[in-house]
Amino acid sequence: MSALDKFLAGWSFRSSTPDYEPGDTIEVMVTGEKGGEATARIGDSILRIEGAPDDAVDTRVLVAVETWDGSTHRGTGTYRETVGGSAF
């Protein structure tokens, strides 16, 4: 990202329910788990993550998005790898 791009990033009104496309690979913070499966809350959208490690909560992981419902802002994806942790 160029210096100019850094200054111009974020000059927009962003939805509280971001949507993603099947096929996207995204980095997310795992924010909780439900029924033994990791979940990532992105704004008010929810991504269920299959195959994540048991201790994945509060780690940053790469996820391949497989399904996404734009009306409910819910989707599923597959865990790829852990790339970081919480800032605290």
């Binding site: 990033a9 009104f13 962003r14």
Partner: peptide, 13 residues
């Protein structure tokens, strides 16, 4: 309230 400038973790590292 409006989402001006809001960015999520997946947007950029």
């Amino acid at each position: 309230v409006t989402g001006f400038g809001r960015e999520y973790v997946p947007d950029r590292t």
